[in-house]
Design a protein around this nucleic acid. Structure first.
Lengths: 232, 232
DNA sequence: GCAAGGTCTTGACATTTTTCAAGCGAGCGC
DNA sequence: GCGCTCGCTTGAAAAATGTCAAGACCTTGC
């Protein structure tokens, strides 16, 4: 693997504390590849041959069943995905495709497992990472089971607003049709949901969102740190 | 903590590989308590003071938001819960209550974190446990997002049938009102869903289920190992 | 035995969500 | 520029799901 991304990857919490030697060993067999948009990287059910690290671009984790498809998560730089499958040496539960042009590092799963076996700091970092992932999915599930689609959209907007800096105006960071399946609804329904949120001070212009009445929207959305705060 | 449950707990994958000394240290401050049914054990948002181990009985993990409540998972002996919150020293994301009379071991979270810091085998066992938990929640989320409530019920029945030994007749292992929220629907809707499944060879008599046409139900449910197989 | 409280079921109705079909509009290649 | 594709929106109708109210049934305590 070329040197230019070593520092970025080394800075990830997951790899920060491991020994230099093990880090070098881990990435000896790794390589970096560029992918165009909308390329399938992995498919659910396959054995997990590589741990993936998104260096730039964005990746969509999605799942299918019986003609239906849904988006499970979006991976943005710099972070890894399918760590759990890699560690357990189990088949992928989700498929992955690039959303945009992306640069991705591929680390052979067997190397990850080997280094996991010998590097204690790495093992502990994995615990931390997996606990974080677990809690994120729990929050997503609470979001799904406890809220209507309109409430999910309202809370999504508040989260996205915060991520974008907190200003009254911000951009959606991916297309609405994908946002719809992320939120667990159809594109048509999302369109109507945006319209309904007009009443709470949300103005939509293409991908641009303006929140004209922050309090009103917040009162409706009732955000909850135990669902919406990604950091805890 | 009394001796009588040491062996059971020691046999858990999570504690099987750690040193005797650390195991003893870990459970020095632990204690076992009996709880009647329907007792709240912990509440979401609280700091995670204890790792819980269900020794007998059953525990319901549930969450609430804005007057709504939903059941997230059922914990049966012998297993632990809220490991992720304990390790991260973060607030609980879910509440827990006993379903039946239960015997539960409580291990101070700070001891778990301390031993996690010094026992490498324990740290690796936690990785394995968390990876398993993570994958379970992902499956639950796929189940929720990709299937209708009728399909979720049909697949639940097939899973439950398998857990009960695979015979054509078996018992539901908890009350229907809880099953409803586990499956993400209302009790009324569950009642109607059971009725609809008559058409696919499901006969309900109280808590007793009889599957008269296995193939027909399976054809409708379309079970998928990447959603329904809890072991992988 | 009987009353009380709970679950479960049922029916009627409201709401939410999806489906299908059509039209709009921005971006792209020729 | 023109026509095309594709994403987005809109409307109407259907399906799925939730709500409310009432009653059946069961268990439990007295």
């Amino acid at each position: 693997m070329p040197q230019d991304h070593y520092a970025d990857i080394r800075g990830l919490h997951l790899f920060a504390d491991m020994s230099d030697e093990h880090f070098a060993q881990l990435f000896r067999g790794a390589y970096v590849q560029n992918f165009p948009p909308h390329i399938d990287l992995i498919h659910e059910g396959e054995p997990s041959d590589f741990l993936h690290i998104v260096l730039s671009g964005a990746v969509d984790l999605y799942s299918t069943w019986n003609t239906r498809e849904t988006s499970m998560a979006t991976i943005r730089p710099i972070s890894t995905f399918i760590l759990a499958a890699t560690i357990k040496d189990a088949p992928y539960l989700m498929s992955a495709r690039t959303i945009e042009k992306s640069r991705i590092a591929l680390v052979p799963s067997q190397d990850v497992r080997a280094i996991f076996g010998v590097d204690d700091a790495f093992a502990r970092a994995i615990v931390s990472e997996l606990a974080q992932c677990y809690r994120s999915v729990i929050k997503a599930q609470k979001n799904l089971k406890l809220r209507s689609s309109l409430e999910r959209l309202a809370n999504y907007l508040l989260r996205q607003q915060l991520r974008a800096g907190g200003g009254a105006e911000f951009e959606l960071d991916f297309e609405k049709r994908r946002l719809a399946t992320v939120l667990g609804m159809t594109p048509e329904n999302l369109s109507r949901a945006f319209k309904s949120l007009n009443a709470y001070g949300v103005v939509v212009e293409g991908n641009r969102i303006r929140i004209t009445d922050q309090d009103d929207l917040t009162r409706f959305a009732k955000p909850d740190p135990l669902i919406d705060d990604f950091s805890t």
